[in-house]
């Protein structure tokens, strides 16, 4: 049916065909908008659902933590390192010139009370959980944490000092609800 096969969009120069082409184009465009609108819910449904997004906080009782001790808590599915730092650890952190750091940050900017360091225990390189929470763990060359996956070393302020990680360990939103409890998130 050669003649009908020719009557697709794009051909004619006379008025009727141009009007017809416009109608087809307009309809196709309208349909495309509809198709796009229809696709969006299918994609958005994979985004976090309302109950996941609902602000979740984790409250931690700090009383049982001794000086020099480190604990791990879970917050929004990730580990959070809470470290009750010794004076030595605090001094070591404060001695460092921020300009020498891969990700320049002072220790003071990373803590609310010098004694308590709260960081998300996820290596900023590719997401492994760094070692250093247990007394028997390696703490790396800077006394903080050591990520065994690709050899990132973090210092006593959780800052990246050596290795492939680009950023310091993330400090989450937290606040001291009371003297002895901290609320994360």
């Amino acid at each position: 049916m050669a003649s009908s096969a020719e009557t697709t969009a794009g051909g004619g120069h006379d008025d009727g065909e141009t009007r017809r082409d416009f109608l087809i184009l307009a309809t196709a465009a309208f349909g495309a908008v509809g198709a796009g609108a229809a696709v969006w819910p299918l994609i958005d449904q994979m985004n976090p659902a309302a109950d996941v997004l609902a602000v979740s906080t984790t409250e931690v009782n700090l009383e049982p933590i001794q000086t020099g001790q480190r604990i791990t808590v879970t917050w929004r599915g990730s580990p959070v390192f809470i470290s009750r730092r010794t004076q030595k650890e605090i001094d070591e952190a404060r001695k460092v010139n921020p300009a020498d750091l891969v990700d320049p940050e002072t220790d003071e900017a990373r803590v609310k009370k010098a004694e308590w360091l709260v960081v998300v225990g996820v290596c900023t390189h590719l997401g492994c959980i760094p070692l250093g929470q247990r007394p028997t763990d390696s703490k790396g060359e800077y006394g903080g944490w050591f990520c065994p996956c690709h050899g990132s070393h973090y210092d006593t302020s959780g800052r990246i000092r050596k290795g492939p990680a680009p950023k310091n360990l993330l400090v989450p939103t937290y606040a001291f609800a009371t003297e002895k409890t901290v609320r994360i998130g």
Binding site: D44, Q45, A49, A50
Partner: peptide, 13 residues
């Protein structure tokens, strides 16, 4: 019900 209430556009799907 989680789909209906919490998942984005869950009720629609």
């Amino acid at each position: 019900e989680h789909i209906m209430r919490d998942v984005n556009y869950g009720w629609l799907i």
